[in-house]
């Protein structure tokens, strides 16, 4: 049994599909490229694919991951040597906006994505609900104040219940990148690194803590990185090739 980790994007219109939808897309894509998958036992054999952190419906990402088990002794694709070929064929079999960008065989006993990933870098645009432009300077000050404070108490909806808790420790970094430009004239682009343990903090939830009384709204949220931090070091589950990963999202880069 070989475990393969794949990194992929979710950009453009397809961002409105759900986490479950993405799982089904991948199952079909694996069958289309005839990657010999390992199947579970039992009445309804399923391919053994595990996804990491769920990406909220409507969010884009440059850094999604999955681990898949490939059957031993299977002929065909050699994941070790044919990575660019495999990535190309998978991307062709996946919807526009979902592209496989990196793959690697995992060492035996490697921890799962859910066990490993500790934080994510997000970028998004803050706009006001039809009440004129956001002041980048004032928002930057708010960000600094938030980071300087020792608590950030938010009330969030969790599985139909309201939960009030201090999420300050989940905000690892927060900064204003500048005016957003079209199509969000008057909006301001933000970037943050937010912990996903013990529970993920979402950009929209953080925004509620930033704006005066929830006046700010989130547009075009995009995950740029997932991080594994341990003993002071930080790395990605898979390095993406050096294209587009850290470039600020420009409208032309959107898949639609």
């Amino acid at each position: 049994m070989t475990r393969v980790r794949l990194r992929f994007t979710k950009l453009g219109k397809v961002r409105w599909t759900s986490h479950r939808d993405v799982a089904r897309m991948w199952e079909r894509a694996f069958r289309r490229v005839q990657l010999p998958l390992a199947y579970s036992e039992g009445f309804t054999p399923r391919p053994k694919v595990s996804f990491g952190l769920a990406l909220p419906t409507g969010h884009e990402s440059l850094a999604e991951y999955l681990d898949v088990e490939v059957a031993d002794g299977a002929s065909g694709v050699d994941v070790g040597s044919d990575v660019p070929v495999l990535l190309g064929r998978l991307s062709d079999a996946l919807p526009d906006g979902v592209d496989a960008v990196a793959a690697a065989v995992l060492p035996a006993g490697a921890a799962s994505l859910q066990e490993e990933v500790t934080s994510c870098t997000w970028q998004w645009v803050a706009v006001t609900a039809g009440r004129g432009p956001v002041d980048p300077g004032a928002l930057a000050v708010s960000c600094e104040q938030l980071l300087a404070g020792s608590t950030l108490v938010l009330t969030r909806h969790r599985k139909g219940r309201e939960v009030t808790e201090d999420v300050r420790e989940a905000v690892l970094d927060l900064r204003v990148l500048g005016p957003a430009g079209l199509p969000y004239a008057g909006g301001v682009r933000l970037q943050a690194e937010l912990a996903c343990r013990p529970r993920s903090l979402r950009p929209a939830e953080l925004l509620a803590g930033l704006g005066a009384g929830g006046a700010l709204q989130e547009r075009d949220p995009r995950r740029l990185h997932q991080w594994i931090s341990r003993d002071g070091a930080r790395w990605e589950p898979l390095e993406a090739p050096r294209v587009a990963t850290d470039a600020p999202p420009a409208p032309s880069e959107r898949a639609s």
Partner: peptide, 19 residues
């Protein structure tokens, strides 16, 4: 551009994207 802002507020928005 006028449809997309509505999608965050509805159930199963993937029904409206095509693709």
């Amino acid at each position: 551009p006028r449809i997309e802002p509505l999608l965050a507020r509805v159930h199963k928005p993937a029904r409206y994207i095509g693709c």
